[in-house]
Design a protein around this nucleic acid. Structure first.
Lengths: 162, 162
DNA sequence: GGAACCCTACTCGGATACGGCGTGTCCGAGTGGCTTCGG
DNA sequence: CCGAAGCCACTCGGACACGCCGTATCCGAGTAGGGTTCC
């Protein structure tokens, strides 16, 4: 019951893409070196984001990624689901149907009450993630990270991207 | 990012233990046959519940499991955490520390803002699970499952347990 | 008839095997920008 | 001097290897109750 580390990487990549000037892209290479993670594997996470329509890509030299929408329109849930998938955490095998005392054809329709509780918790998790956008995160970062570190990071990335 | 199927089994086992008369125990064998799951493996889930103090055991013949507390005092979260563990679903590797522009010793204290959002969602998930008790589940079952099926299941289990 | 004994059924923990998936790497196809070469 | 061809860097997708963990099974130690046997 762990989220994959690609989720963390994708979130950090989206975070640095928030303050990307128009017309610029961040390459996988720059992002991987900036975060200290393997380039080829990080590429998988970015491809997931691309498949989900959260980021745009440009092929070729000076290519790379940038956000496809405004930071305020991208929630944590969007990113987590892009990487992790949209299926529920709890998989109901409907084992109540194995009850030897259950008449045939009974309990086959309608969700299992136990599954319903688990799915409600899943919903709460998703709601919480959906309530925070990349814009909110940017604000939080601007408040907690010294301005010079932010600016230097920005320049460091732009130096290495098209 | 899936909960193990043992979670589902443990929840169903706890559900049937709710209406167990005082002084009686349900054996692993009975529980496994009732739910149609492998006995030896279900035993692992029950052992997890036992380790967490949610159920009591009696060794020997006519032995088995019963709830250690009243159904109202056992939440879904208790059961899920007993089987799945108590650690968060999001593991923060603190990759922001790899930022080449970050001055040494900076950002090392205080949680990563991204991790904080993920942990808040985790908290929401846990709160949702903690808000439903086995007592609530029993009520829901009594409302949705026909009384004769409940009674017959009860007797079926008691016939096979001490 | 009562007590001691054995047998059985169960819990509990460890050991083991297998498969799937997360993790990580490598490679080839496609594409766009830059450099270089030729007219 | 200018256009075209080649080169390079990057994206994207697939293939592959490795290791961990969830799944599943088996076995032995310990224990309590019931049946059996012996006094």
């Amino acid at each position: 019951m762990n989220l994959k580390n690609q989720v963390e990487w994708a979130l950090h990549c989206c975070a640095v893409m928030c303050s990307l000037p128009d017309g610029r892209f961040l390459s996988t290479k720059a992002l991987s070196e900036f975060h200290g993670v393997p380039k080829e594997y990080l590429s998988k996470a970015l491809q997931s984001l691309s498949r989900a329509g959260l980021v745009e890509t440009t092929p070729g030299a000076a290519g790379g990624y940038r956000l496809a929408r405004s930071p305020a329109a991208v929630s944590f849930l969007d990113i987590v689901e892009a990487v992790e998938g949209r299926k529920s955490t709890f998989l109901c095998a409907n084992i109540r149907a194995n009850n030897p005392c259950r008449p045939r054809g009974h309990c086959d329709d309608g969700p299992c009450p136990i599954a319903r509780v688990m799915w409600q918790a899943d919903e709460a998790w998703r709601r919480s993630l959906a309530s925070v956008s990349l814009h909110d995160l940017s604000g939080e970062l601007a408040r907690t990270v010294p301005g010079d570190v932010l600016a230097r990071s920005q320049n460091w990335l732009l130096d290495r991207a098209g």
